[in-house]
Computed example of a mutant assay.
Amino acid sequence: MKRTQQFFSLSQRALYALFLSLCISVSPVVAADASQAQSSIGSELEDIKSQVIQLNRDLFILEEDLLFPASTQIAVFVSVDVGRFFTLDSVELKINNQDVAGFLYTQRQRRALEKGGIQKLYMGNLKTGQHQLTAIFTGIDAEGRTIQRAVNHPFEKTDETIMVELKLEDSESSYRADISVEEWVL
């Protein structure tokens, strides 16, 4: 009985040694194949990643076209010229007496507008026909009083995209801020 146990233990050791030697001799080939497979998988992943990014861009464009078709689209922007007679605090936008947008400005956002920035305040859809845009600007005048400036702008929406800029401008002659409206049809 002891001899059989010794035989198996010797044969098991021999098999183990043979297995180790095979593994050691085959490992460089397996490692080379593994590195090639890994680089191949890496390049496939990069290709898939770039395809996903392109599909995401296409989906975003499609979503924009579906949500805001050019035939019904309107965009409203706000800009500020100088800002000595009126420090902008907030703006409220109404179209056809419906509240559509409002914005409360931080000091940083106000400075960006005063340096020439333009803010997209609203983007939406309207039917063709006559419409009324009302913008109410709230802020502080040169004496530190809270005041409001408002503008009503009637416009006609056609099948083209319309863009409206609400420009808050200092008036040197009246020492107060005025609002001008510029309209572009694309």
Rank of each mutant, 00 (worst) to 15 (best):
T72M: 10
K157I: 02
A135N: 00
L126W: 04
Q107T: 14
E114G: 14
M163Q: 06
A75L: 14
I95P: 00
T161H: 12
D89R: 10
D141M: 05
A75Q: 14
I74D: 01
G124R: 05
R111N: 14
V78C: 08
A142R: 11
G83N: 09
D99N: 10
L126E: 00
T146W: 08
T161M: 13
T134Q: 09
F86Y: 15
Q119L: 11
Q119D: 10
N97Y: 07
Q98A: 10
N97T: 10
F86P: 02
I136W: 02
S79H: 07
I95R: 01
F155M: 06
Y105N: 02
G139V: 00
F77C: 04
L126V: 06
Q73D: 11
L93M: 00
L104N: 15
Q148S: 13
N125M: 03
F137C: 07
L126P: 00
K127N: 10
D99Y: 03
I162L: 13
N152W: 06
Q109W: 10
F77S: 08
H131P: 07
H153M: 04
Q109V: 12
L121I: 05
N152V: 13
V151S: 05
A101Y: 04
F103Y: 15
Q98S: 11
D159K: 09
T106A: 05
N96L: 02
I95E: 00
V164S: 01
Q73H: 11
I147H: 04
V82T: 15
G117P: 09
Q73E: 14
Q148W: 07
N97P: 04
R84W: 12
T134R: 09
Q73R: 14
K94T: 02
Q119W: 04
I118Y: 03
L93R: 00
E165Y: 12
A112W: 04
